[in-house]
């Protein structure tokens, strides 16, 4: 079933962009038609991973009503692994654009929500995309809540520190529950010792599921290789045998069952 998946988090730097890129490429490598959008207008980041030459229209333009969504989407050059199609829509990284997006009023945000909600019909029904992946900004900001409302599935990426856990818990109950979203939690950068055995993993999963009231999709240890890659290339495509790539494959299958 076709769906829009949004990656969200309470705090920044949890790995939303890494997961968005990895999930999009995993589906594209399975032969699916995928679109990946950068909805983090305050700190755009997808442009760094996908160096598209001469982007003419940004997602900012689509939300401003300047152009249709087709104009924003850039098809990426084929990699060896990719059997399907992968298109990206980028947020404008210029300081001027970031400042402009931060100063939008409520009426503009209402129109932006309408345009995001209409993507479901345009992209999934008319353009026949199998998946649309949204990389959002952290916390309870207009752009991220708009994205959550527009998505079919919301995945919260969280760490294990107390402040992130508290904030995520509150956010889940005060936002996701109200919009009746299908949601799941990905716990990232877990200290390997905490999930070294199946028993420890099960115990931790149960604890976290009780706290959040949501299924824990996966608990992922901290990988130095990912940090070393520094977001300069698509990790799951360059490292197909790495445990992180295998985990992303499992996550992709689990999302299908949501």
């Amino acid at each position: 079933m076709r769906k829009i998946v949004a990656f969200h988090s309470y705090k920044g730097g949890t790995g939303k962009t890494l997961f968005s890129i990895s999930l999009a490429t995993t589906y594209a490598n399975r032969g699916k038609k995928v679109c990946l959008f950068d909805l983090d207008f305050r700190a755009p980041s997808l442009h760094a991973a996908f160096k598209t030459d001469g982007t003419e229209y940004w997602l900012n333009d689509y939300l401003n009503g300047v152009c249709e969504v087709e104009k924003v989407m850039t098809e990426l050059s084929q990699s060896r692994a990719r059997k399907g199609e992968l298109l990206v829509g980028l947020a404008n990284p210029s300081t001027e654009a970031i400042r402009e997006m931060s100063a939008k009023d409520r009426k503009w945000e209402m129109k932006a929500l309408g345009r995001l909600l209409s993507l479901k019909t345009t992209l999934l029904n008319d353009m026949e995309f199998d998946y649309v992946i949204l990389d959002t900004s952290p916390g309870l900001q207009y752009s991220s809540i708009n994205a959550i409302v527009s998505a079919d599935v919301a995945l919260v990426v969280t760490g294990i520190d107390a402040s992130d856990r508290e904030g995520t818990k509150r956010m889940v109950h005060e936002l996701y529950d109200l919009f009746e979203k299908k949601a799941g939690v990905i716990v990232n950068k877990v200290i390997a010792d905490l999930i070294s055995s199946e028993g420890a993993k099960r115990k931790m999963r149960k604890q976290l599921e009780t706290i959040y009231g949501l299924p824990v999709v996966e608990m992922i240890p901290c990988f130095c290789e990912i940090l070393r890659a520094g977001g300069t290339y698509v990790f799951t495509e360059e490292m197909p045998e790495h445990p992180f790539t295998k985990t992303m494959d499992k996550i992709a299958t689990k999302i299908d069952r949501f």
Partner: peptide, 14 residues
């Protein structure tokens, strides 16, 4: 104006 943005949506009854 009475704007139907996400913040208003959050404040509405279910």
């Amino acid at each position: 104006p009475d704007v139907l943005d996400v913040m208003t949506l959050l404040s509405l009854p279910d």
